[in-house]
Write a protein that binds this DNA or RNA. Structure first.
Lengths: 303, 303
DNA sequence: TCTTTACATAGTCAAAAACTATTCAAATTG
DNA sequence: CAATTTGAATAGTTTTTGACTATGTAAAGA
């Protein structure tokens, strides 16, 4: 337990520095007895006499007071630094911010996003996290990151969002698949094909929902949480898959060519949002990063 | 101006560390709302949200809160060190103490004194100052040193003293002086001799007072504040001197032999005391050093 | 000697911080 | 899945702290 206050220390340091309680009081814009009392109390609480009072001739430090004085100056500087740190995290456009992303979205969007941001705000540092939807929400709530890029699906009420873009789901087929003859593919046409399901919440529910909306019961041959594994299986001809994010170059990790076709008819698109915890007051850097994300996706759409 | 308190920081650090306001309150022996309110206020004053409150699941730090937390831990440790420093200067027998001495007494007494003290209290450090009576009193008042070894002559009321020893004044003559035939010397016998006066307050007044008390008007040939210069002049046969402190070996700096004889009849002795400022509350080390001085001079007398 | 200076003390009042009791929402349990 | 428990926030009250004005006091200085 600390038995003194920073205010007492401030009064003491100034009075000792000026050699005068009156001058210290003037500089602090408080009354002389306030300073006097604060120092007296500080002495009681520390159990040492810090100042020698002279009549009509100010004060001087005792040898013990001189030792405390230099330590106290140090401590006050330290205390000011802490205040500055806090001020800068809430006000300035410097500091650190933790941005998380849903796994499948991360490699597609984050590199371009943080790249441009780092150029515009060189004093900032953006930390990247990848997680499943569930962990993203948990992480926001526990303060592991301030912002998360994810699908606007089944988000609880305490999570606030800003819309960024929409992703149109598509059908992924191996390069020699007969359905690639058409410009688009009806989900009905896939009824008798084996499906490779990307098994990550909320994608799983989303894709299965698309199938059910089209009145099709999918035949799930494989499922995996890894998009690259799904793409690999499709590439080897084990079935089709539905995906929303689309890596550049329709080729699997092991070099198999893939084919892509839009889904025929109206489909529910995947709404990508930037989420944060509603009860978390945003720092300045958070606000700037949010605005930057919105702008970034707007620019992309207009290209 | 610092806008937060160490108490708020303590509450925050403990709550963040425990992940729980309730547990922090228990460990601090205060009520839960007190901790809650203190942290809320701290957040207002720093302008940053530090904790995320969960219902029925404690609290977690925001990323900004985590930064503040580590700084705050640091600051609190620093604050505790300051308190410990103060406690040790007033309680423990370690630390620093400044001991001053009247110039003529210093070379005679201080070496043996601080030598033994340093052995008994290895954690302590005694700083030595030498000054005239006037400067000693001023130094005590201004806090340049806590203790001073000096003559108990004309001391103001605000100076407190502890008696240490008495010095018997003696007559200093050059080695071939005829008065050395006698076992002691009457001051009357010096009436027609030139006097070399040690001109330092309060010695000057003291020695002149001795002469006047014996009904002798001294013929002052030379005067100097330096005892060694006085001894040198006596050694060269320029006159006699009266002194109280007596260096070992009655020889001047330049090798002239000296003779010493006590004063015949009753004389006022020089009372050596250890002085301190009455309004200065003594630190532990001061008390110990004072006691040590008393003991040291007692031992000397009993040898 | 008289005035000025500068710190301490006394007494009052407002702000801060502590407490108890209660509320509220999520997590846990039967 | 309703009931209970948990843990933080809020409301209202009391105590403590700190600031103020006015006054006292003793040394410094004119």
């Amino acid at each position: 337990m600390i038995r003194y206050s920073l205010r007492q220390l401030e009064y003491f340091v100034l009075a000792a520095g000026e050699g005068s309680v009156v001058k210290a009081a003037e500089r602090l814009n408080v009354s002389q007895p306030s300073v006097s009392a604060a120092i007296g109390k500080l002495e009681d609480q520390l159990g040492v006499q810090l100042l020698i009072r002279h009549h009509a001739a100010g004060v001087s430090t005792t040898p013990a007071g001189a030792q405390v004085l230099s330590q106290a100056r140090n401590l006050l500087q330290h205390a000011n630094e802490l205040q500055d740190l806090a001020a800068s995290t809430s006000q300035e456009i410097t500091g650190e911010v933790h941005l998380a992303s849903f796994v499948t979205l991360a490699p597609l969007f984050l590199p371009g996003l943080i790249d441009g941001f780092a150029v515009d705000y060189p004093g900032s540092r953006v930390h990247i996290h990848e997680a499943t939807q569930e962990h993203l929400i948990d992480g926001l709530r526990r303060g592991r990151f301030e912002l998360a890029l994810l699908y606007d699906v089944d988000l609880p009420e305490d999570i606030e969002t800003v819309a960024l873009t929409q992703l149109h789901p598509y059908v992924l087929l191996h390069a020699t698949h007969p359905l690639l003859k058409h410009d688009d593919v009806s989900l009905k046409d896939l009824e008798d094909e084996p499906m490779i399901l990307l098994d990550v919440a909320p994608s799983r529910t989303y894709f299965l929902g698309l199938m059910r909306a089209a009145g099709v019961e999918p035949d799930i041959a494989f499922s995996s949480p890894s998009m690259e594994l799904v793409r690999g299986l499709v590439g080897k001809g084990h079935g089709y898959s539905l995906l929303a994010t689309r890596p550049h170059g329709d080729v699997t990790y092991d070099g198999e060519p893939l084919g892509v076709r839009p889904i025929r008819g109206p489909v529910e698109t995947g709404r990508i949002v930037l989420a944060s915890l509603g009860k978390l007051r945003p720092t300045r850097l958070m606000q700037v990063l949010t605005a930057y994300c919105v702008q970034h996706f707007e620019d992309k759409r207009n290209q």
